[in-house]
Design a protein around this nucleic acid. Sequence first.
RNA 1: GGUCCGUUCGUCUAGGGGUUAGGACGUAUCCCUUUCACGGAUAAAACACGGGUUCGAUUCCCGUACGGACUACCA
Length: 508
Amino acid sequence: MNREVRVRFAPSPTGALHIGGVRTALYNYLFARKNNGKFLLRIEDTDQTRFVPGAEEYIKDALDWLGITPDESPWNPADCAPYRQSERKPMYMQYALDLVEKGHAYYAFDTAEELEAMRERLTAARVVSPQYNSITRTQMKNSLTLPEDEVKARLASGEPYVIRIKIPRKEEVRLNDMIRGWVMVHSSTLDDKVLMKSDGMPTYHLANIVDDHLMGITHVIRGEEWLPSAPLHVLLYKYFGWEDTMPQFAHLPLLLKPDGNGKLSKRDADKHGFPVFPMDWQDPNTGDKAMGFREQGYLKEALINFLAFLGWNPGDHREMFTLDELVEAFSIERIGKSGTKFDINKAKWYNEQYLRAKTDEELAVYLQNEVAKDGLEVDAEKAAKIASIMKERATFPADLWKEGKFMLIAPQSFDQDVASKKWNQDAVTVLNSYVQELAADTAEFTPELAKALLEKAAESNGIKLGKIMQAVRLAVTGVGAGPDLMAVFVIIGKDELIKRIQFAVSTL
RNA sequence: GGUCCGUUCGUCUAGGGGUUAGGACGUAUCCCUUUCACGGAUAAAACACGGGUUCGAUUCCCGUACGGACUACCA
């Protein structure tokens, strides 16, 4: 059967969207575009206790920023609206009830205390994995053990209850994961998961299957943390009678900590000083702040390219890919199986590549913004010139200004190390001559002219230029390293240049 | 503990029964150069271990070890 490819990204709005979630969204987007299908966003907010204001908007903004905007979502709904599970609440119960009728699910009235007591009892009896399953359910309060009359009475009285799936005692459950191949699990290791919670909301397991079915989802591309519950999902498709249209599963390798082991977390961000969220975020409840890639100066092109390569590769030696090129090259077959450590250095490298690829005019805008933050101004033309000589040594747009402040601000002090090694009488002599040459010349000030005049000043004193270049740089910029000096001279202008040299000579 | 998943340079990975095991980031050295950077070149650096199958395994199979995920009325 040939259905239109439809995939979904289904985050839970419980905080900032983790970078691993962004990668999942990206892969879904790429797969949808590659196959001329649709990419939908569904908000999985069935846990009302974990609602965090602003989290939903954060998800939307992050995807928009990166250019992986869903075709269907709460903000641009289509045929499958609504796209928020909380708004779909009324439609889940009928499906749960359908399962109860078919004998694949049942009511359970156990309280939290009773469940806890059961687990303790089993643990004491040294049962390896205490769970609500085909054995233990016979000792609990549910519609399988209670008389029919009592079940009806309890339901009628409004007593809280949940609906649990009735996992078969012995059955081999198998699924063919697109990344991992056949995965087989015996039903005896599964437990009777809650499908409908006592607050009337479905759990993830139920809502996920019902919505994917109703929304015509053809492929479920999600993180590996879902693999253990996938057999349960397969069983649900079977019990609903939706096997024919059951989506194909693809469980993505996890994003791991850069050091040691384990899943990448916010703690790693704090520890290593790099972001694990796409954008800045402040939790409205706790006040906790987290930095974002965007605010740290990562370009969206770089983040996308970096993320795409965390677990996937094109099979050749190409490294640089635009979003469109990724769409063209993407395939699930080329996604790896093993977990991926998060290496921020690679992200920085990508950032440098994309930064240098930007035009001077684009970069000038970034630079002007940074300059403005310091209460200064620079016109677009000059900003572009600064950008052109600074971008080769910048990782982030902010570096253009951070590393190039001397372009607009005369040095008030000088690097002592360089001064002690390179500053000498020869340098002073040449610089004094240079000032005279500069003052006397009336031609248009160009890098070539600046160089010619400097050479003249050195030669007339019988001093080799190479001997005093570092000192000249120090005098004008205050530091011993930076872009081509003659280009710097022209940008700061002849008058300012003379002033700086005079200040340096009288100070050093 | 149980279930499931995984394991090629420090990191991301290509490859696949016979290869000098390839690329990228990072690291080191050299070249370019007025410095730094960019760029170019070179180098060090990997098939977890043990069995089996085979003429031959890094590649296929089985174990072991190690790592990870899951094990809620959270997703």
